[in-house]
Design a protein around this nucleic acid. Structure first.
Length: 486
DNA sequence: ATGTCC
């Protein structure tokens, strides 16, 4: 029997695997996607999402967003809400190695015509001022002691030290500083790896992109206006990065700790070592939660310093102040995280640890934690597509309740990095993209080949599936004209 | 994703 026949079709875009599929499943698994997306889905995702469904405390469903694909333990695109009052666990594999990896979007008052003559200079200068690539180090020189403050204070440390505007903070989840980050829970090795990485982009699918909001790509003019997209062919800057080697080391440290205590101390048996976890209310679980929050703050600080550099570069090349260029933030939202949230499940409000691993929080209008200017329209959602095809700005909707208010985070890969390297050539791709009006700079041609648009699902399909399923609403598609890739 | 294996 083909694997796809195991799926029960709930709607055009929601597919369920019942608990009878695998011993130990506590809840059904649900995969989001159009029929086309489901047909092309790597069947290993079925195995991963149903493994997740066996974890203690999992509530309602183990979920996979329409951009889902195979990942470490959990699928990328995975959402799992654990009831922390019912023995719910915290699992690094449900958050990702790149803790609080996320997207930030900033607007300008410039049009494509105004920026076009400067695009190469802008991209070249950004490439110099925002270090990218494996092992890159930043311009912010910190002592280990000061770096510990950064990971406890996040973007708030940056604003105090002149990297950005006060108004930026309210446009970041948690106002740029999640409470409860405790650097006493961080290893010296993690400090070593992170201390020189503030203000750096990283590698892989991390990038910084100059984009255009073309009039034909605006799906809702009123909402677009509320989000700062107000002029035809407006230039915006989007970037994607996370907590670099710091977050990676935090995840590595706690995976080891969890593997030691999970079964012997807590009697938790799992189907895959990569799902290592600990009860949320255990010393180990709480220590990881506090350490993971340092990763969250490190990534907020990282993106804040990068934003500062972007404003500097635009100001230098366009010969106007960032204020005169109206370089306001739209929002900063993460897609590799676990947050303690209150959700209503079967009519009862419960305290859930919502793991989002390659999944974006998508709060509906009126929910708490939204900046006041977005309270009525819902949370801005920033979804980065491949560097060739474009990205999206969306908002959260009421029916997002079905996924604990979560949606997709990107296009989702359709082939491995190794396969992409065989099919595409970075130098050729760079030339082709330039001829199509996208000027791209990268630290590595092989890295560029891995990120070819053809190695990803069609972003329009993913976004459409999310909208049809009622987990987010399209506002504007943003298309690239310049890209800095790690 | 990642000092792309201690």
């Amino acid at each position: 029997m083909a694997m796809i026949e195991i799926l029960q079709r709930i709607s055009d875009t929601i597919w369920e695997i019942p608990v009878s599929y695998k011993q130990g499943m506590r809840v059904p698994a649900r995969i989001y996607g159009t029929e086309k997306i489901i047909q092309e889905l790597d069947e290993a995702v079925y195995d991963q999402v149903t493994n997740v469904a066996t974890l203690p405390g999992i509530t309602k469903y183990a979920l996979c967003m329409p951009d889902g694909h195979f990942g470490y333990g959990f699928p990328i695109g995975g959402v799992a809400a654990m009831d922390v009052e019912q023995g719910g666990v915290i699992s690094p594999g449900g958050i990702g190695f790149d803790i609080n990896c996320g997207m930030r979007l900033v607007v300008t008052n410039l049009t494509y015509d105004e920026v076009k003559p400067h695009i190469k200079k802008l991209v070249d200068r950004l490439y110099e001022r925002v270090p990218a690539g494996v092992g890159s180090t930043g311009f912010v020189k910190l002592s280990r002691h000061e770096f510990r403050k950064v990971v406890e204070e996040g973007a708030q440390w940056c604003i105090r030290n002149g990297y950005g505007w006060e108004e930026d903070l309210q446009l970041i989840e948690e106002n740029g500083c999640i409470a409860g980050a405790d650097s006493a829970k961080i290893s010296e090795k993690a400090i070593d790896r992170g201390v020189n990485q503030i203000g750096t982009l990283g590698s892989g699918n991390h990038y910084l992109e100059i984009q255009i909001a073309r009039p034909e790509n605006i799906f809702d003019r009123e909402l677009a206006k509320s989000l700062g997209i107000t002029i035809p062919n407006q230039v915006v800057v989007m970037f994607h990065c996370g907590s670099r080697g710091f977050g990676h080391q935090v995840a590595t440290d706690y995976l080891q700790i969890f593997l030691k205590v999970m079964e012997s101390k807590y009697g938790i048996k799992i189907l895959d070592r990569e799902l290592a976890c600990a009860p949320f209310h255990s010393p180990e679980g709480q220590a990881y939660f506090a350490a993971m929050k340092c990763g969250i703050n490190m990534s907020f600080a990282n993106r804040q310093v990068i934003l500062h550099r972007i404003r500097e570069v635009f100001s230098e090349i366009l010969k106007k102040s960032p204020e005169d260029l109206d370089m306001h933030m739209v929002y900063d939202v993460a897609h590799n995280t676990a947050k303690l949230e209150r959700h209503i499940v079967d009519g009862k409000e419960r305290s859930l640890l919502v793991h989002r691993k390659g999944a974006t929080r998508a709060f509906a209008p009126g929910m708490e934690d939204l900046p006041k200017q977005y309270k009525n329209i819902g949370q801005p959602i920033i979804i980065g597509g491949s560097m060739e095809t474009g990205s999206y700005l969306l908002v959260g909707v009421n029916s997002g309740e079905q996924t604990f208010f979560s949606t997709a985070h990107g296009s989702g890969r359709t082939m491995s990095r190794a396969k992409a390297r065989k099919i595409y050539r970075g130098d050729k791709l760079q030339k082709e993209m330039e001829s199509r009006g996208i000027y791209v700079r990268s630290t590595s041609y092989s890295g560029l080949a891995e990120e070819a648009g053809g190695a990803y699902k069609n972003i329009d399909d993913v976004i459409e599936a999310a909208e049809l399923a009622g987990i987010s609403k399209r506002v504007v598609k943003l298309t690239p004209i310049g890209n800095i890739k790690g």
